[in-house]
């Protein structure tokens, strides 16, 4: 069978990325231009600045992806681009650019759901991994427990009712006066603290065992910090980070394992930016080992926003015959299952 080569483009938040991937899993290049240093001084991603940077970076990043792969546009079979969810202004840069490329080159265009990209990062990391498996998607905007039934096919088992896990990390990090992005900082700090120093509440959603709620624990952390300061005591940031992270990890791990057992699946994958959290990886690994479940998670570079994962997801859509038209739009609130 002829090789299928996909050029992936991703610009949903603060990374401008392009990648060339052959047959879905063979990454020939994975170029990421991060803007973290720019957004750090604002304490978070500024959408207008992110969009402006995308426009400046998109051509060189695509060029570099082709050069690193040792290819030209002639070698590309189709172009895959993230069209949601994400920041609308940021998404629009990638979408408009990818559409113009596809149109001028007369190549097929495939709009990809950003989170389906994150899930697909596992296919790149593990060449042998095939559905079905349970996938726990944890990122700044998502906390979804899903059952992958096929490539690009899945059922949502549970999701957060309020904050996403990554959002809770960011808010707690801000309260602890940690620099943006807060997730990795909490992870690092947690290693030096006692995870049982403070017992934060583990919220359950009534009649929906697999759903999550993180706003309660976030508020509990904020209240705890405030009450310490009212008493004139400086809160132990390491203990707070460790206890908070432990609480989140516990909520995520117990539900994931329960889902794997209920659906009789012996494979569990992590996906999304928070999948890079070492506490989550470790907690999930220990729990999976006990239950004889195989755990999969992408390398950190594939957990962050990247275009290789978009090209991978795009490949599986491509071989199913999915094509997007010239009127493809950015959909900032694109839901999982709507792609």
């Amino acid at each position: 069978m002829k090789d299928i080569t996909i050029l992936g483009i991703e610009s949903s938040c603060d990374e401008t990325a392009a990648a060339v991937v052959v047959n879905g899993r063979d990454v020939r290049s994975n170029i990421i231009s991060s803007q973290i240093d720019i957004h750090r001084m604002y304490g978070g991603v500024v959408p207008e600045i992110a969009s402006r940077k995308h426009i400046e970076n998109i051509d060189p990043v695509v060029r570099q992806a082709l050069e690193t792969a040792g290819m030209t546009f002639n070698d590309i079979d189709a172009i895959a681009v993230t069209y949601g969810p994400g920041l609308v202004g940021a998404l629009l840069v990638g979408v408009a650019h990818a559409k113009a490329l596809a149109y001028a080159l007369n190549k097929p265009l495939i709009g990809v759901h950003h989170i389906e990209g994150h899930i697909s990062a596992n296919f790149i990391q593990y060449k042998e991994l095939e559905p079905p498996f349970i996938c726990m998607v944890v990122s700044g905007g998502h906390t979804h427990l899903i059952k992958m039934t096929g490539y690009g096919e899945y059922e949502i088992i549970g999701k957060t009712r309020d904050d996403a896990a990554g959002e809770a990390f960011d808010k707690v990090a801000r309260a602890l006066e940690l620099e943006y992005p807060g997730g990795p900082k909490i992870d690092k700090l947690a290693k030096t603290g006692d995870p049982h120093a403070i017992e934060f509440p583990r919220a359950k959603v009534e009649n929906a065992y697999y759903d999550f709620s993180f706003s309660g624990v976030k508020s509990a952390v904020l209240n705890y910090i405030n009450s310490c300061r009212m008493k004139g005591v400086e809160p132990d940031k390491a203990d707070i980070a460790a206890s908070f992270q432990n609480c989140l990890v516990d909520s995520i791990v117990t539900r994931t394992i329960a889902a794997a057992k209920e659906y009789g699946l012996s494979k569990v994958a992590l996906a999304g930016g928070v999948a890079a959290n070492s506490g989550l990886r470790e907690g999930m690994k220990n729990a999976c080992d006990k239950e004889n479940i195989e755990l999969y998670y992408p390398a950190p570079v594939l957990c962050t926003d990247n275009a290789a994962m978009i090209a991978c997801a795009g490949y599986y859509e491509y071989i199913k015959g999915k094509r997007s038209g010239l009127s493809l739009n950015a959909v900032p609130n694109l839901k999982l299952g709507e792609a």
């Binding site: 426009i55 998109i58 051509d59 695509v62 060029r63 546009f73 629009l92 840069v93 990638g94 979408v95 408009a96 650019h97 990818a98 559409k99 113009a100 490329l101 149109y103 001028a104 080159l105």
Partner: peptide, 9 residues
């Protein structure tokens, strides 16, 4: 982005 895409392609 559209014009850049055309020019690059």
């Amino acid at each position: 982005a559209t014009v850049k895409g055309f020019a690059l392609a």
